[in-house]
Amino acid sequence: MDLVLKIWRQKDAEDKGKMVAYNVTDISEHMSFLEMLDVLNEQLVSSGEEPVAFDHDCREGICGMCSLYINGEAHGPDRGVTTCQLHMRMFNDGDTIFIEPFRAKAFPVIKDLVVDRSAFDRIQQAGGYISVNTSGNTQDANAIPIPKPDADEAMDAATCIGCGACVATCKNSSAMLFVGAKVSQYALLPQGKVEAKDRVMNMVNQMDKEGFGNCTNTGACEVECPKGISLTTIARMNREYLSASVTED
């Protein structure tokens, strides 16, 4: 198929940036979206132009590095996938495709389609861990039985890949789904209970400090999340936060 791509080009963080149109031809429906961009970049490089910079790494939907806002949707039109798992069979010959970076105040553009998501790291550093030393002198793994439904639910929350689609898609640029997922994982497990109060307070405070917006329960994040993280994680975080705030020392 032949396509027109309208892509956000921005030289660096200071540059104003603009949409630029490119044509690609002979695109196979079996290609992934990023392979289609590879084709474009090979064209650009061959003619001595700078390729379009975009983040990507594992190309199997798990590292969370790829992003892209495609035709107004985070990770494009398919559901339950990252951009690297999106395939060209979702598009038609002659389509014009708009490709933009994830946009949020807390995700400044570095170049073209590459954004800085280190705010996510800083939220995790504020409390996204259990304070246990890694020396191996812990109790036997089977010493604490965990009900299977709890373990499974914790796992569902833990599958968040930290891509930022929830933020990009939210009209408030809220990071509540991302933070809710981590808070929920630990809240559901006995190991996480000890520091539960501090964790939720610190992570939420850091989230606010980074400039993410609040949640208005629209639920767009849940729809666009490539890993299907549930909105209930936000509810659980709110409950944890509330109970932590009223019982604070």
Partner: peptide, 22 residues
């Protein structure tokens, strides 16, 4: 064997059986 103990202590949600064990 230490690795499994360590990871469980860190909150890694390994798959469990219905009895709650790994």
């Amino acid at each position: 064997t230490n690795i499994i103990d360590q990871c469980v202590a860190q909150g890694v949600p390994f798959a469990r059986e219905y009895g709650g064990l790994l």
